[in-house]
Design a protein around this nucleic acid. Structure first.
Lengths: 336, 336
DNA sequence: CTGAAAGCGCTTACAG
DNA sequence: CTGAAAGCGCTTACAG
C-alpha cells in the first residue's frame, strides 16, 4: 500500500513551468511573478508535494538536524537535559536526533559515522571521561558542544552548571542550621562533577572553621541503590553525622531510605541534602532540600550554542557556566 | 576551523581503483578481490572517510531514521515511552528522531514535511483525538504506528496497553480490601484511555454487586495540579469515598496531596490507587499502589513493529495489546 | 573481479 | 522574471 510520492519535476510539468521556478517558489525567492507563484503553490497543494529531505541535504550540505548523545535515558537527570534540548531544537527549527551511548555502541562503531551528512552538529553528555573518545570528537568535521563536562582538558565548547558554588551553598545552609558533623556521599570515582561538589563541601567547611574529615566522605556511584547500601553500612558505625550532603538527588533518596529503614527520621534525626533538583525531588517524602542544577536550561543552552556554531555566527562565549540555586524543602532542619 | 571531508571519489583515486569498487567494499559485496578489498579499507582508514548519509539516502531511498512524536517531554509518562523507543532503535540499527507536538507545531507545518526523505517511518503518541490529524497521517507515504491510541477509528497499526483490565484489577483490589464507596478521578474529557479505565472501574463495581454512582466520578485532566484542586473541593463535601482510583499516577499524587493537606492519612483514612506506574510511583510517600502500564515496552514494541513495516516484512499482528499489571504498594489498605 | 554511465531530487551558478 | 545545465555523493543496473 505504498502511496506514490511526487517530485519537484512532477510539480513543474503539471504546472507547466521549469523545475527551477518551482524551487524558487518553494524557497520564497522574490524574483517570481505573482501569477506564477500562485500557480505553483496550487499545484504543490494539489499533488500534496513535499520536498525530499535527503536531496536538499545533499545539495545544500545542511541536514537540519542536531544530534544529542546521552549515556542513557534511565534517570531524570538525562531526560531533563533532553527536554531542554528538544525545546531548543523546536524553537530553532532543527530536528533532534537522540542517541544513547549505552553499551558503548557509538564509541565502537565510530562517532564519525554519526556526523557525516546525518547531523549538522552534535551535543554530548559524555559517559565518562574517556580521553580517546574526546580526541576523536575533536577530529569531527562538524561543531560539537559538551554538556556538564569537567573531565579531561579540551578546547571544545561546553555548557556546565556550577557545581562548586551550589555545593558550597548547600553545606553552608547546613552549617547555618547548626550542623557540625556533615557527611558527604560522592559520585563515581574520578567524576569531575562530583569532585567539584566535594570541593564545594570542603571549602564550605574550612571557610566556616570546621575541620575536613575524610572519614565523613563516602564513595557512591550516583545511584540510589549504592547510596542505600553505603548508608546502611555507615549507620552501623558510631557517630553517624547529623547531616549528609549527597552528591546527587538519587543518592540522597538512597540515604533517606536507609535512615528510614533504621527507624530514624528525616530531618528530625538526620538532615539530608541532594543536588540536581530532578522533578522527583519535590515529590518524595520528605520533600528534598537540594541544589537546582539547571538541567533543562543546560540542554537548551547547549543546543542554542550548537546552532550558533553550525550557522557560523561566532558565539560570544564558548564556555558557558549556568548558576545553581539552593532549594530549601523539608529534608533539612535544625541540628539536634 | 572546518576540517576537510573526503568523499568516495577521494578514496577511489587515492587507492587507484574505481568509485564502484570502493562502494562495493563499503557495502560488503562479495565480488571483490581480497587484495583490492584490503587496499581500499586501508585507504578509507587513512583518510578517515565516512560515507555521506544524505547521499546514501537519496540513492537508496532509506534514511535509516525512525521518527517518534510525543506531545511533550514534561512527564515521565512520555519519557518512559521515549526510553523504550530509544532502546529499540539502538538495537535495530536505526537512528531516532524525536519530535514534540507542543503548541501544535507539526500539525500546522504539516506532518508530511517530517516524513519525506527524513524518516523511514513514524511512531506517534497523538496529543488528542484529532480526526483531521489522523486522516493526514493515513495519507503519509511512509509506515506509521500509533501508540496508546484509543480515539477515532483508524486502520493504522497501533500498540496499546490494556487499560480496561488493569482498571478492573485495581478496583477489584479495593473491593477486596472492603471498600464500598470508591471514587474515580478521570483524565481529560473524551480521552480514549481514560474512558477505558472508567469502563474498567464501572464493570468492576457492577460485577461485584456495587452500584455505579456518577457522583463519585470526578473530572480531572491527567495533571497533578488539577487533581489536587478537584480533590480539595471534593473533600469539602460530605461522604468523601473511602478509596479513590485516579486515572493516572500524577492525578493520584494530586489526590494524595490534597488528602494530606486536610490532615488525613493515606491509606489509613483514604486509599488511593493510580495508573501507569511511572518511576516516581515507587518513590513517593506512601509508595503508590498502581497499575503498571508497560510504557517502556509500548515504546519498544511500537518501534519494533515500525521497523518490520519499514522493511516490508509483513508483521503478524498490526494491533498489539500489552498486558497491564496491578502493583500493590502502600497507598491502599483495609477500609475503615 | 572491475569500471563507465546514468540517475536519485534537489539547488547553485550562469544565461537570456 | 524564467530556464537548461551541471553537480552534490552515493548506488543501481549494465558491460566487459
Amino acid at each position: 500500500v505504498k502511496k506514490s510520492v511526487s517530485t519537484i519535476a512532477d510539480v513543474a510539468s503539471q504546472a507547466g513551468v521549469s523545475v527551477m521556478t518551482v524551487s524558487r517558489v518553494l524557497n520564497n525567492r522574490p524574483e517570481v511573478a505573482q501569477k506564477t507563484r500562485h500557480l505553483v503553490l496550487e499545484t504543490v497543494a494539489a499533488l500534496g508535494y513535499a520536498p525530499h529531505g535527503a536531496a536538499k541535504t545533499l545539495k545544500s550540505g545542511k541536514t537540519n538536524v542536531l544530534g544529542l548523545v546521552v549515556p542513557d535515558l534511565n534517570s531524570q537527570y538525562f531526560t531533563e537535559i533532553v527536554r531542554g534540548a528538544s525545546q531548543a531544537a523546536n524553537r530553532l527549527g532543527y530536528d533532534l536526533s537522540l542517541y544513547t551511548t549505552a553499551n558503548g555502541q557509538h564509541e565502537v562503531r565510530g562517532i564519525s559515522a554519526l556526523s557525516h551528512g546525518i547531523a549538522d552538529g552534535l551535543a554530548l553528555v559524555l559517559p565518562r571521561s574517556s580521553e580517546t573518545y574526546l580526541r576523536s570528537l575533536e577530529q569531527l568535521p562538524i561543531p560539537i558542544v559538551l554538556l556538564n563536562h569537567l573531565g579531561a582538558q579540551t578546547h571544545l565548547p561546553a555548557v556546565n552548571g556550577d557545581n562548586y558554588l551550589g555545593a558550597r551553598q548547600a553545606v553552608e545552609h547546613l552549617i547555618g542550621l547548626g550542623h557540625r558533623r556533615i557527611g558527604f556521599l560522592s559520585g563515581s570515582l574520578h567524576s569531575g562533577q562530583s569532585n567539584e561538589r566535594l570541593r564545594g563541601y570542603r571549602e564550605a567547611l574550612v571557610t566556616n572553621g570546621l575541620e575536613f574529615n575524610s572519614h565523613l566522605v563516602r564513595q557512591g556511584d550516583w545511584s540510589q541503590t549504592t547510596a542505600f547500601g553505603v548508608t546502611r553500612a555507615w549507620l552501623e558505625e558510631p557517630d553517624f553525622p547529623s547531616a549528609v550532603f549527597a552528591t546527587n538527588d538519587f543518592s540522597a533518596f538512597g540515604v533517606i531510605e536507609a535512615i528510614k529503614e533504621k527507624g530514624w527520621r528525616v530531618p528530625d534525626d538526620v538532615s539530608v541534602i541532594g543536588f540536581d533538583d530532578v522533578p522527583m525531588a519535590m515529590q518524595v517524602f520528605p520533600a528534598l532540600t537540594t541544589v537546582r542544577h539547571p538541567l533543562v536550561k543546560i540542554g537548551y543552552t547547549a543546543l542554542h550554542l550548537l546552532s550558533e556554531l553550525v550557522e557560523q555566527r561566532e558565539p560570544i562565549v564558548r564556555q558557558i557556566l549556568l548558576q545553581s540555586e539552593l532549594i530549601v524543602r523539608d529534608s533539612s532542619g535544625q541540628a539536634r
